[in-house]
Amino acid sequence: MKQPIYQVDAFTGTLFGGNPAAVMPLESWLTDKTMLALALENNLSETAFFVRLPEDDEADFHIRWFTPGIEVPLCGHATLASAWVIFNKLGWDREHIRFHSKSGPLSVKQTDDGWLVLDFPNYAVEAQPTPTLIQEALEGAPATAFFVPNDTNYMLVLDDEAAVRAVQPDIRKLKQLGNLGLIVTAPGTACDFVSRYFAPGGGIDEDPVTGSIHSALVPYWAEKLGKNRLEAWQVSARGGVLRCELKGDRVDIAGQATFYMEGSVHLP
């Protein structure tokens, strides 16, 4: 069996920046075991798989995302990469792409300047004392953390961008939390806010650019800064830029995408 595969750098206009994602369009679903094995073989933070739905369905495609270790309920950069493939490689001529996912309906549209806009859910955060394991993993962690029930992430708000860039957490300690990961964020110097994301629970020490965490970051910073339109930078080594807007119970997350390669996978 031969399956097409694409690789796209998401949330960047420059090759070798942003977050690389593998994208595999399918005629029908492979087994979960096979998709997880493919994600592990690809060895990227996420591999997206999608299947075309019937014309009378409320969505156009059913999408799923796998890290090298688990299936995740929501992924921004691999959705962005999938949309780029659908628009540019699969001949999609409609304005929007509608996805069915584990996190409900999602959609992507393309702007006149070539950016792709994700329509994602708004995730609430809950303030709570910072878990001991996070305090042990990250020297100087603030006493209060924020928990994101929808995806089990914790979020720490630091003083400034320099503090976010300097973070070097003990990944082994973070993995012991038993959740998905840890977001660290702060006001930006040349943008509204910055972030980094560590996800050892998903088999990823640090994710280069993570669209899904902005479902929680955007409503948090929109309230703090008193504005609904925000520019965000994820300040990992590869880095990426996101244009975001809070829209009630939804969040728009926009980014660029850069094509890297295409090929085929030969399965037994």
Rank of each mutant, 00 (worst) to 15 (best):
K224I: 05
R196W: 11
G188K: 08
E231W: 00
G201E: 11
V235T: 14
W233M: 13
F198D: 01
S195K: 11
P200N: 06
G211K: 08
L174R: 14
T185C: 02
A186F: 07
S195D: 15
S195E: 14
L182C: 03
N228S: 08
R172V: 04
A186M: 06
S212W: 14
Q168I: 12
E206W: 02
D192N: 07
T189K: 13
T189F: 13
K227E: 14
D170Y: 01
G203P: 04
N179G: 00
K173Q: 06
H214V: 13
I204M: 00
V194R: 04
H214I: 14
Q176S: 11
K224R: 11
D170G: 07
S215A: 15
K173S: 08
I213W: 11
R172Q: 05
S195I: 12
Y220Q: 09
S215C: 15
A186K: 04
K175V: 12
S215K: 15
H214S: 15
Q168M: 13
S212Q: 13
K224H: 08
N179C: 01
F193S: 01
E231N: 02
K173A: 09
V209R: 08
W233R: 15
Q168W: 10
G211I: 06
V184R: 00
P208E: 11
I213N: 10
A186R: 05
E223H: 14
G202F: 03
K224C: 03
L180T: 05
D170I: 08
C191M: 07
D207L: 08
Y197H: 09
K224N: 06
A216C: 06
Y197M: 11
D207S: 10
P219R: 00
F193Y: 05
L180C: 04
S195R: 10
D205Q: 05
P208W: 13
W233P: 00
L182A: 01
C191T: 10
P169S: 04
E231M: 03
S236T: 03
P169L: 02
D207N: 07
L182R: 00
W221Q: 12
I213Y: 12
E223A: 14
S212E: 13
G188R: 04
D192I: 05
A216D: 03
Q176G: 09
S195W: 11
K224F: 04
I183Y: 01
Y197T: 12
Y197W: 02
D192E: 05
E231P: 00
P219E: 04
A190K: 09
P187K: 13
Y220W: 08
W233H: 14
E231V: 03
I213D: 09
L217N: 12
S212K: 15
L180D: 02
Q234W: 10
G201C: 09
I183T: 09
G178C: 11
D192M: 06
F198Y: 06
G202Q: 05
T189D: 14
K173D: 02
D192Y: 03
W221E: 13
L177Q: 03
L182Y: 01
F193K: 02
C191Q: 07
P219V: 02
A232L: 08
L230S: 09
